[in-house]
Design a protein around this nucleic acid. Structure first.
Length: 390
DNA sequence: CGTATAGAACCCCGGATTCC
DNA sequence: GGAATCCGGGGTTCTATACG
């Protein structure tokens, strides 16, 4: 079962966990050493500072392995390698020191690999915020390979990390390019070959018509929601729960290629093109509209998604009483839009769709890489698959 | 009916206190 | 004095609903 030369060890055999200090608010300052809190492990650079004389055991230098034993499940809980500035450690976080013949990089990986299990032991009065006992970490059992093999395993997995980083960069590039493309094509700053005609200055009300059909006969349409980043999604999968209301007769019907947005929150950017069902229903608060024959839904939607229009929406909604925004069709329909000829709209939309497809392809590459790395990591760390050490 | 406001769910957190 | 537990909050982002 256990490979030759490997040993069964508990976490307390291979490392020492040393708690951070509970800094009190009156010790906070605006200068001095940053106090490293859980949120800082997860990318936040929102620091309090400690300007007194720090004890040695509080100090954290870059490269130090830390372990957050409280935090959000699957997000801020678990091991992190500190790559921020030198600082002092807040409570709820351990400093992790390797013990004996244990490689630091391997140690990080093995801790990462058992994080789910440790999270499973969590207690706490809310499911999203977990706390574990030191003991629950210390008593976890791991398979410890000889030092050279630890190093080899860590090295192999770091090459995967580099591949993933490379793909992430590729993705960021493509997204950047698409943004630039949108900036150029949707404003008419740059024209696709073969198109010359003047763009028509008009308003949304002139090219689209509000649709306000209630689901009076209570048809069993899927209920969908418009989220900021994903556009329309099925409410059931989005909320992981049932839809709030039992009576869906007041909901509005939205058909394929129509655009909708929750009219009291468009400043958040949640506006979507309905492209997941032939017919579906949305909350009564939504405004739904369909394009006239001279306006291409894909083109119009792409325009409405640009930063420029997001700002227009924000300006129109910020004036409302509680600053939570509301933008009704009467005001929305007056927003100006420049429209090229239908063939040019289609051509531009096609270019953007191609860019989207490229991005989707890279995204799926990325998720495949991550998946494969995870599987490999599992095999290497348990000894199910061996590496050759020279 | 449209609109403004209320309410609900979710996400990401951590200081303070008690226990041993 | 370190470990464990107690105890909610601010912000966001969605839907529900009361009221004209």
């Amino acid at each position: 079962m256990l490979p030759d030369g490997w040993e069964r060890k508990t976490v307390s055999d291979i490392c020492i966990l040393q708690n951070g200090n509970g800094f009190k608010p009156h010790q906070w300052d605006t200068k001095g050493l940053p106090i490293i809190r859980i949120q800082n492990l997860n990318g936040s650079s929102n620091f309090n500072y400690f300007s007194g004389k720090p004890l040695e055991k509080w100090l954290v230098n870059p490269g130090q392995i830390l372990f957050a034993w409280a935090g959000s499940k699957g997000v801020s809980f678990g091991p992190f390698i500190w790559n921020g500035p030198q600082g002092v450690l807040n409570q709820h976080i351990f400093k992790v020191f390797s013990k004996g013949k244990v490689d630091k990089n391997w140690l990080y990986l093995i801790l990462r690999s058992i994080t789910d299990k440790i999270e499973g032991q969590a207690h706490g009065f809310k499911a999203t915020l977990v706390h574990v006992k030191k003991q629950d970490i210390d008593t976890q059992v791991v398979n410890l390979p000889p030092l050279p093999e630890q190093k080899k395993i860590a090295a192999i997995l770091s090459t995967w990390d580099r591949a993933i980083e490379g793909t992430e960069k590729l993705l960021a590039n493509s997204q950047q390019q698409k943004k630039a493309l949108m900036q150029q094509l949707l404003t008419g700053k740059k024209r696709l070959p073969g198109f010359t005609g003047e763009w028509k200055k008009t308003t949304i009300g002139n090219i689209a018509k509000e649709i306000s059909i209630r689901n009076k006969n209570r048809k069993n349409y899927p209920v969908i929601s418009c989220t900021k980043t994903k556009g329309f999604v099925d409410s059931l999968s989005f909320f992981n729960k049932k839809v709030y209301s039992d009576d869906l007769s007041g909901y509005k019907i939205i058909s394929r290629n129509q655009i909708g947005f929750p009219s009291n929150h468009i400043e958040e950017g949640s506006i979507g093109l309905q492209n997941i069902h032939d017919d579906a229903i949305v909350s009564p608060i939504y405004t739904v509209f369909s394009m006239g024959k001279n306006a291409d839904p894909l083109f119009v939607f792409a325009v409405l998604k640009t930063d420029h229009y997001r700002q227009i929406f924000a300006a129109a909604t910020n004036s409302s009483v509680d600053r939570r925004g509301s933008l009704r069709w009467s005001a929305f329909s007056q927003i100006k839009i420049n429209l090229p000829s239908p063939p040019e709209q289609k051509a531009i939309a096609a270019v953007l769709t191609t860019a989207d497809e490229e991005i989707t392809a890279i995204e799926s590459d990325l998720s495949r890489l991550r998946q494969e790395k995870k599987a490999l990591m599992q095999q290497l760390l348990t000894g199910k698959r061996r590496v050759t050490v020279d």
